[in-house]
Design a binder for these strands. Structure first.
Length: 435
RNA sequence: GUGGGUGUAGCUCAGCUGGCAGAGCACUGGAUUGUGGUUCCAGGGGUCGUGGGUUCAAGCCCCAUCUCCCACCCCA
């Protein structure tokens, strides 16, 4: 029988698990250092909690769960797998109005999207998400950028860029161009700029029925200096009040980020950055890496209306999510993982069936001294067991043969350096622990 | 949802204008009677994704189908 993994999913074998845990633990340490607290939510939500929050495209990609019993046979769904961690977080805020605000939480869990898989894109993937609820201060955005860039740096990333924009700037473009009602379509076309170029975007805009002169006017609005402050000055001069609010917010985000230690040479104001999710209301940002072929490794922004939409109680919020498998894809391709050895560096052999208990006792003794130990559970001869230990990249091999069993000692061999000694268990433990 | 590739040993792949299914790595046994990584010798492994068709003969040609990958859309 041929068996297949569901499309867009993967098994994580021990080697992958070591890499994933290394990344998760590094990121978690940064999150905790910034005062974020752990939170987890169920894999699925009531479907009405999720729909209508992400936009038309997003809604289409939500995995729905059929009703149990009669309704399910008609194709009715009342539950759905979570699409991101932001909306469940907003639901938690809505249901727990006694949480002290501002509330900072991190969440690292899988999310599901009924997408077509490709490089760096899966149907089940993990997000490492931090959010701040109850703060309108741009310092909250700055915290998000600081936490994300520090995470990348501690993982060993050197080349990455933070792209920064504000939804109000984009809305202002639409108003100034007189196409306020079609802001969404404008943004979708604009977002493709770095892929299809100006001509491509122009063609798409006119193709979508925008006035023929609109592209030129749009390029004029977007023609800003590369340097961040100069770009914001230029935008401020030509946008309406709404757009200027966005510009002012970005100025503060930049200066507060710098105060938190973010390297502003990595941050680029990008007036064309759109981001597809409907719930964003203010600053939005994305972190991209040049190589690795996955593009975006993190994204987020401010969503001041989402919690109010769920509970009627307006709570401003802002967050950022790192995509775990995108980080892993790039790290793998860049060779950023050291040779990860197995958890148990000590391999205890079993000399013969008669000496199994002697080996178990030695293994238990080493474990009692805090040493992770793998005891051989197969039935092959000693030579094969040494090969096994070598193949598993164990550092140490312990042999308890007739001589050792009689003398109450063990043989400890260092596979890395090659030497071995016969000694008591305390001396062996000492040697292992001191490397 | 749209388009383009792909599938042969556990893994990476080769296989010519159709003519006996291959290599490297991995694995197993031995040279070594209590010791790995190097070397040498020997060996086990395949419904050629699946189902049809053409042919004396199909891994190769034709049709269908599935898988995975890549790109679009959108996103982490």
């Amino acid at each position: 029988m041929a068996v297949f993994l569901p499309k867009g999913t993967r098994d994580f074998l021990p080697l992958q698990m070591r890499q994933r845990r290394q990344v998760i633990e590094t990121v978690r340490a940064v999150f905790v250092r910034h005062g974020f607290e752990a939170l987890e939510t169920p894999a699925f939500e009531r479907i009405e909690t999720l729909t209508g929050k992400y936009g038309e495209e997003g809604d289409r990609l939500i995995y729905k769960i059929l009703k149990r019993g009669k309704g399910g046979e008609q194709g009715e769904a009342d539950l759905a797998l979570r699409y991101d961690l932001t909306v469940p977080f907003a639901r938690v805020l809505s249901m727990n109005q006694d949480l002290r605000l501002p509330f900072k939480r991190f969440q690292m869990q899988p999310v599901w999207r009924a997408d077509r898989p490709q490089k760096g894109r899966f149907r089940e993937f993990w997000q490492c998400d931090v959010d701040v609820a109850g703060s309108t201060s741009p310092a909250a955005e700055a915290e998000c950028l600081a936490v994300a860039t520090e995470s990348l740096q501690e993982l060993g990333f050197t080349g990455f860029t933070v792209l920064l924009n504000d939804r109000r700037i984009l809305a202002s473009f639409a108003r100034l161009l007189g196409v306020e009602a079609r802001e969404g379509a404008l943004l979708v076309a604009l977002d493709k700029l770095d892929k299809v170029g100006k001509d491509g975007v122009s063609a798409e805009l006119t193709g979508r029925g925008f006035p023929p002169e609109l592209p030129e006017r749009l390029w004029a609005l977007l023609d800003v200096p590369a340097e961040n402050d100069a770009a914001l000055d230029a935008l401020e001069a030509r946008l309406d009040q709404g757009g200027r609010d966005g510009v002012a917010a970005l100025r503060q985000v930049l200066s507060l980020s710098a105060a938190l230690g973010v390297d502003l040479s990595r941050v680029q104001v990008a007036p064309t950055l759109a981001r597809g999710l409907d719930y964003y209301t203010g600053p939005v940002y994305e972190i991209v890496v040049a190589d690795g072929g996955v593009g975006t490794v993190a994204g987020g922004g401010r969503y001041d209306g989402l919690i109010g939409l769920l509970s009627g109680r307006e709570v401003p919020a802002v967050g950022i999510a790192l995509g775990l498998e995108r980080l892993l894809t790039v790290m793998e391709e860049r060779g950023m993982f050291a040779d990860l050895t197995p958890e148990a560096e000590v391999f205890v052999t079993v000399f013969s069936p008669a000496l199994l208990e002697a080996s178990l006792k030695v293994g238990a003794g080493l474990r009692a001294r805090g040493i992770p130990v793998e005891i051989y559970l197969g039935d092959r001869k000693l030579k094969a067991q040494f090969k096994e230990a070598d193949a598993r990249k164990s550092r140490w091999v312990v042999v308890v043969g007739p001589d050792e069993a009689t003398a109450g000692t063990l043989t400890l061999k260092d596979l890395r350096r090659g030497g071995q000694r016969v000694c008591a268990i305390d001396e062996a433990a000492e040697a292992i622990l001191t490397g």
